[in-house]
Design a binder for these strands. Structure first.
Lengths: 211, 211
DNA sequence: AGTTTTCTCACCCTAATTGGGGATGCGATA
DNA sequence: TATCGCATCCCCAATTAGGGTGAGAAAACT
């Protein structure tokens, strides 16, 4: 049986050309095409599509908010965003809101059909240029190779507890060592991390994902 | 001119079939195929490829470490990882280490050629099943909506500087307010965040991505 | 094997910073 | 008017930072 598709796009031309596209291929069936996502949730509840195609900018309720609502109510329903611009921020917001795929409108009809099949069978299709942005964010948000400050195992223990917000005394208790010993370790840690206060140490540790 | 490709894969069969693939297409030229990545950096320096194909598991130096080294020395050289399993952790480590694309060996030769073209022209090709994992991580690692502790603008200013490791006095200077004022703000912040020390505040702020 | 370095632990003293209580004034906003 | 944000000040106790010293054990060098 064909994959049931619902489409939200304010551009009449796009709606019609996609309708033609799906008509010409028996693997797909367009069960609805709407110019806004205002009552998207109800329409989905009625037509029960397998895949949602959602334009990112639409008058009224925009695609990004619509995705959030749809995803909340139908968590397993795959949603593919359609866009003309590969604006990094909106890509991200959409993805975080629950969209699975992200296709540029400029990509070929074949690619779109392929993307729908992908998303229907558990993949997450993205235009390569979009994937690149996603990855860039991923790389900068998780700064891979942490610099190695050569902390000893014990120092890492202490630092971990420090980061958890414990005081010297509490750390001493937890590690079953003396208060002054904790201090010695912390002095060494500061030296190695090139910091001089607890907050700097905690901040550096979390930001650079040490430990 | 054809895209110059260098390949690292310990499986002789794969090396040979890819060699055949590139021979049959004039858009590509395999300028080297090696069974390990031990001296990858030097080989790259000599053969000057446009794209690197790197198997993820190899005896000796594994592909993940190799990527890190190659990316460090040739930051603009695109690297595509090849793998049989779409193991989420290794995907991520590779991506963080600088790989741009990530293809399953099970994908078709056409897809691989396409991926090479994509990466060469600035995209980031990924198998949809891999992209899904990437997105999943992205969604769970950036925990959408942070709890709102109702901090005032001024309190956020203070908290930001606190997180940067500044002392009360330094914050006072920077914000051009009195030392005691900083203290009162911080007291309020602690109250709102339900913490009682600087480290707890910093830790909570960074971990929950407040600000 | 012998020496040196490193890690862990512990203690001292002093100065600076921080945290928990207050209280007060002023302007904006509700 | 009453609350809220923002700014300022006070005191006091606790915590933290910087400067040392030193001992015992394990790891690394020679």
């Amino acid at each position: 049986m064909p994959i049931q598709i619902i489409l939200f796009d304010d551009n009449k031309h796009i709606r019609e050309s996609l309708a033609m596209l799906f008509l010409s291929d028996n693997d797909f069936h367009l069960c609805g095409a709407y110019e806004n996502a205002e009552s998207a949730e109800d329409l989905i509840a009625i037509t029960k599509p397998d895949v949602v195609l959602m334009d990112i900018d639409m008058p009224g309720k925009n695609g990004i908010d619509a995705v959030a609502d749809i995803h909340k109510r139908f968590p397993d329903l795959p949603i593919i965003m359609l866009t003309v611009f590969d604006d990094a921020d909106r890509v991200f917001t959409s993805l975080r809101n629950g969209a699975l795929g992200y296709m540029l409108k400029s990509s070929s009809p074949e690619k779109l059909l392929e993307a729908i099949k992908d998303v229907y069978s558990g993949g997450a299709p993205m235009s390569p240029s979009i994937a690149r942005k996603v990855m860039f964010r991923l790389q900068t948000e998780s700064p891979g190779k942490p610099e190695d400050y050569q902390l000893t195992a014990r120092e890492k223990d202490v630092l971990a507890l420090l980061v958890d917000g414990l005081s010297y005394k509490m750390i001493a208790d937890k590690l079953d060592i003396g208060f002054e010993t904790v201090r010695s370790h912390i002095k060494k840690i500061y030296e190695k991390l090139h910091v001089q206060t607890m907050t700097e140490a905690v901040s550096k540790t979390l930001r650079e994902r040490l430990l």
